[in-house]
Design a protein around this nucleic acid. Structure first.
Ligand code: MN
Ligand code: MN
Ligand code: ZN
Ligand code: ZN
Lengths: 156, 156
DNA sequence: CTATTAATGGAAATGATTGTCATTAATAAC
DNA sequence: GTTATTAATGACAATCATTTCCATTAATAG
């Protein structure tokens, strides 16, 4: 039931366009991220693909994730513990533009895209206002909510 | 012209209330943060106070900042490079509730509090909606804009 | 198929932060 | 003020995610 290597050809072109080569490690990692809704760390990814590709090293996982981020195929996310997580940038499985709700107890991460309209409005106004007022060329924003998930709340 | 040690007595009580002792290192660091509008790293702080207090170690700076954060006198801020910055939580010099505009070129950080009303409204709606929908007890949020400051923009 | 050069993996390095532990100093009790 | 108690300190080592190095391998152009 897994969609395996399905987009290889599409990806091949994209890699080529960036001057990158298509390699097994890149395909395997992209494939893994395409088939999960989790937000995995480099080591999570390493351990998972190690089951089927024990020859792919952790260093390569890091390098690959950097390449994929550069190509905007993957989004790197920082929830404030010192460990980056990664998710596929465009996925049919999750809303395009979404933010994260992070449990500070167990590090569970929930995607949400509620209130996006209101948010988009605020972002537009803010970006416009701040750009002018502070002479900043804004390229990016970060919105995140922190709290305790149900389980952690109960456990507390 | 520096406001030096002025709040020592007020702080003394606060430390006491938390079961902490008032020490030279704590006073010096609090004093430094009270007299700057910068967002300094532990090492920035260490180097600055080292000029007048060469006996205070970097470890103590870290521990002190942790204590001050715990007391909510200081706010620890993460702009995504692997280095935390600190600022006085309540300062007459900066807006109470503010967010940050970060230059990804030179790490310059600008405080802003524009669009706060609109933002507060969004935050309230979002927190309320997400709390219910995902059964999360939200305690905190993070909003940050990234981009290039005028200087870095020109230099690019 | 061969040459070119990007990509890889394993080990070592990095760098911010934290842990350890003997020593010092802040406060409480006298 | 002196003393006893124990938190706080400083120097150093340890941690741990991520990077850097470099000799080897593999992807692609021709
Ligand atoms: Mn997500
Ligand atoms: Mn600030
Ligand atoms: Zn949780
Ligand atoms: Zn800049």
């Amino acid at each position: 039931m897994k969609k395996c290597c399905k987009d290889s050809e599409g990806w091949q072109g994209k890699f080529h366009g960036y001057g990158y080569r298509m390699t097994v490690a890149r395909e395997v990692i992209l494939d893994l991220l395409s088939n999960t809704d989790k937000h995995m760390s480099a080591e999570d990814i390493y351990m998972k693909i190690h089951e089927t590709h024990p020859n792919i090293g952790l260093t390569t996982v890091y390098r690959t994730l950097e390449v994929l981020s550069d190509m905007a195929l993957v989004f790197k996310l920082d929830i404030g513990d010192g460990r980056a997580r990664y998710e596929l940038a465009e996925s049919p499985k999750k809303p395009n533009h979404h933010h994260h709700l992070v449990c500070t107890g167990c590090r569970k991460i929930v995607d949400y895209s509620d209130f996006i309209d209101q948010e988009v409005k605020l972002l537009q106004d803010t970006e416009k206002g701040l750009s002018k007022k502070y002479n900043f060329k804004i390229t990016n924003h970060l919105i995140q909510f922190y709290g305790l998930c149900g389980a952690c709340s109960a456990r507390a």
